[in-house]
Design a protein around this nucleic acid. Structure first.
Lengths: 194, 194
DNA sequence: CGATTCTTTGAAAACAGTCAATCTGTGTGG
DNA sequence: CCACACAGATTGACTGTTTTCAAAGAATCG
């Protein structure tokens, strides 16, 4: 059950995990199943857990005044989910996170998570790198959002995260790209013609 | 000369700086002046320095195939600049960074910077927090880019970073918001009417 | 003062969004 | 096992917004 998490940590750090580390991780990261459309976090709540996806797919989104959903993040196997800002500052989240597929996760509370960050070397290293890579990805995506056309952004997504296109329907992808599903559909048929 | 940096570090960490810390910082962060429009980093170069602005204003931007500049970041006094992704991975940057005003900075090389991160407690803590807040801000800005109208984003900027509107001309602000200068001009006159 | 940069305005064109209808495939309950 | 409901994808016509291009007015700097 914890194999994929342990493997993930080993792959993303140079320090090796001790026997005690492995035991501690196994004890604190508990398995949980989220059914399709089940919430992991709802707008207004404080994000309580740090969650690693073993199998399945989740999405993070906001809902605007008109009731339209805007997808800000998509996550599948071997990704972490949760609103770090909300958990770090203990402020209510502006995001909703729910399962798009039947999803198995390993999750831990914030307090245990904070303990691990400082006590388990490999864990701390892994998360610092993860944060770093995440910040880089955000910077790129932001730059893409203000400087590229919807078509270019779709092509980029196709190239860099082809899994997303297979796992999520087009209206979710469209929302993630910041356009409507109709516009995405038209972009796709146009691209085929070329 | 180094007062604003030392003050900044003290304000952003709980650990106190020792005499040696102060000495080390003074020795390694050297003063440099950038003239208006002078580059700190050009697209294709590897970002070599970590830079703290003492006085002035800089902007980070990409240039697209049509030669149009897209501003991804604006920075003024007490902000850090530099492409962390490029410096961390030693890859060529896709960004340009230049001075918008006459700008005084304190800068250090990457190697010294990395040394400080681990050796000076206050410094490491400060930068971890900075990275964190930066990541949160990026997440918010990205969400704003895909879910809010240009007008809402402008109002947000006015509310959260009013300094930017005073320091940078409208065509720069427009680019930062992902719209043309003409559209921004029209948004502004409409808002006044209301 | 003259040059340069910045801002505004107007009109046309391009683009994305909205609304509504249709088509497809999937899966569930009778 | 079929029928029907449901979620998703596509298409068309229309509307509204943003961009583009061009020109002119305002502000700033040397």
């Amino acid at each position: 059950m914890h194999e994929s998490l342990l493997k993930y940590i080993r792959n993303h750090s140079t320090t090796t995990l001790t026997e005690q580390d492995v035991e501690a991780i196994k004890k604190t990261f508990v398995h949980k199943h989220y059914r399709k459309r089940q919430y992991l976090l709802q707008e207004g709540e404080v994000s309580k857990y740090v969650v690693f996806i073993i199998k399945g797919a989740m999405r993070q989104y906001t809902v605007d005044a008109k009731g339209i959903e805007h997808v800000s993040r998509l996550s599948i196997e071997n990704w972490w989910v949760g609103d770090r800002e909300s958990s770090t500052n203990l402020t209510p989240s502006i995001y909703n996170i729910d399962a798009w597929e039947e999803t198995d996760v390993l999750q831990t509370t914030l307090t245990d998570f904070a303990k691990y960050l400082s006590h388990i070397a490999a864990f701390g290293e892994m998360f610092r790198k993860l944060d770093e890579r995440h910040a880089f990805a955000m910077q790129k995506r932001l730059n893409a959002a203000i400087s590229m056309t919807a078509e270019q952004r779709y092509n980029d997504l196709e190239k860099n995260y082809p899994q997303f296109l297979q796992r999520f329907p087009q209206h979710i992808i469209a929302s993630y790209l910041g356009i409507t599903k109709e516009t995405l559909s038209r972009i796709r048929t146009q691209t085929v013609k070329k």
